[in-house]
Amino acid sequence: MLGQGVELYLYIYDIIVYQVISVDVLVRGIDDEVYTKLKARASELGLKIGEALTEAIKAWLKNSPETDERERERALNIATYRRMKRFLEKNHKGKWVLIARGEVVRLADSLSKIVETSKSEGLSGRPCLVFKIGETTVKRTLGLSTGRKTR
């Protein structure tokens, strides 16, 4: 009885381990040259292709800005800006605006009031967007610019 229990446990353990820790996937469209280099490097390091790919994916995920909480919050604020842009330009031209946590937090006549709101709302240090509606634009020339600019 006990032996059957252990066997059953090991059977379940096998399923859990193999299903959770590794999966078989078929990936199409990998660049031939990149794959050849990956195979060569994996061979040099004594790794299986799957192990090398796992390491590569881990590194990519770690460095991907989308995984960063700040970047996610920033992206949310940018999406809010794009969604609200026309409304703000039509109804609140000339006002300063503060966008945080994916919403318009404050409209104000001066930047100093925006800074006050940032402090009072506990937004200090969090990603926020700020601009003067209809007026803030940034144009730069860096060194040997041809002056051709694209948005």
Partner: peptide
């Protein structure tokens, strides 16, 4: 943490260099 008062990227023109 200058991104606490960042200007929306849509309001910043990209510059093409020489």
């Amino acid at each position: 943490k200058l991104d606490s008062f960042e200007i929306p990227p849509d309001l910043i023109e990209t510059t093409e260099t020489f």
